[in-house]
């Protein structure tokens, strides 16, 4: 469905007299098969949206090639546009226009007749729980409703490939969860291939078959969520030791678990370290501690999160990456 080789985008930003070249996307290879749901994850400014804009023919790549739905994004851009649905970060519905009319006009720009888009539009409104909002202005809608309306607009011409750019940013948890079910439906009900960008780990985790992580314009990983997580060396075991005199001993015993290579962190009464297959190792550890008279106030075992994956791959946590990335504003890229 999507095949990209060496895709790159260089922006020029001017500050006073000095022109700096910013390589927002730096040689991206992508292969996405039909029917896949792929989460494109990365901190703000990593190049997610820029990559998406190149794949959706909104931005001409400075280097590299890409075919989307079988068409070249540069030489066959109209065919690409005909085959894809794109829901941008900002949506694309004027706040003063009536919802139904906006969706119909959009569909008609794909060459559909008025009757076709009216019928399809009303079906989509029903599927996306927008019944009764056909004649409403989008400025009177809730964030979740507005986002579902954006998606209805992106689906009006029944695309087989759907791009969603940050679909749930700014929504409350309930609206997010609701939107997730609709996004899952895209594949379940219509067999669409979905390519979504997000900087939420849980979103990528729960929606996608495969996660592609981008950092500083380069792909740093591409695998299933489970495989990515098992690449992190083990689960995090976090012990709270009762009695300060036992902390060092507990740390030693935790460190000797598994292959003994993991580092143990001690912080006051808390001892934590990574252990492969913690489910198997922990009972033994508990018996061991108990037999040596070391009591615990608490024990927690955390499966690795995508944040841990990101940390392992880039040496920074996603949150730090967000904070440290000073995103230059490339001309024409909506923020």
């Amino acid at each position: 469905m999507i095949h990209a080789r060496g895709l790159a985008q260089t922006f020029e930003t001017k500050q006073g007299r000095t022109t700096t070249q910013v390589r927002a996307v730096d040689g991206v290879d992508l292969d996405i098969e039909e029917g896949e749901v792929v989460g494109f994850l990365g901190p703000n400014g990593a190049g997610k949206t820029t990559t998406l804009r190149m794949l959706t023919t909104l931005l001409r790549p400075t280097e590299g090639t890409a075919t989307v739905a079988g068409y070249d994004v540069v030489t066959q851009s109209a065919d690409v546009r005909r085959s894809i649905g794109y829901v941008s970060q900002t949506g694309g519905i004027s706040s003063y226009a009536r919802a139904g009319e906006e969706v119909m006009d959009h569909g008609m720009l794909y060459g559909r007749t008025k009757a076709q888009v009216e019928k399809r539009g009303k079906e989509l409104f029903e599927e996306l729980q927008l019944d009764g909002l056909w004649d409403r202005q989008s400025k009177t809608m809730s964030g979740g409703q507005k986002r579902r309306l954006d998606i209805a607009m992106g689906l009006i011409h029944d695309p087989t490939l759907v791009f969603l750019d940050e679909p749930t940013t700014g929504l409350d948890p309930q609206a997010r969860a609701n939107l997730w079910t609709h996004i899952s439906d895209l594949r379940e009900r219509r067999g669409a291939t979905v390519f979504l960008t997000t900087h939420y780990l849980d979103e990528a985790d729960s929606l996608s078959d495969r996660i592609i992580i981008i950092d500083k314009g380069q792909i740093v990983a591409s695998d299933t969520s489970d495989n990515l997580k098992s690449a992190v060396s083990g689960d995090l075991v976090d012990l709270e030791v009762a009695g300060a005199e036992h902390v060092a001993e507990a740390a030693k015993r935790l460190g000797s678990l598994g292959d003994g290579s993991s580092e143990v962190e001690v912080n006051g009464n808390r001892v934590s370290g990574r252990v492969r297959r913690a489910g198997r190792a922990v009972p033994g550890l508990l018996r061991d501690l108990d037999a040596n008279g070391i009591a615990l106030d608490a024990i927690e075992v955390h499966r690795p999160t995508l944040d841990d994956v990101f940390l392992t791959l880039t040496g920074r946590s996603l949150r730090d990456a967000e904070a440290s990335t000073e995103t230059p504003t490339p001309e024409g890229a909506p923020q």
């Binding site: 941008s88 900002t90 694309g92 706040s95 607009m153």
Partner: peptide, 11 residues
Amino acid sequence: EGVIEAERVTP
């Protein structure tokens, strides 16, 4: 509001 971009992504 993203209207231009939405129009530009149609054929």
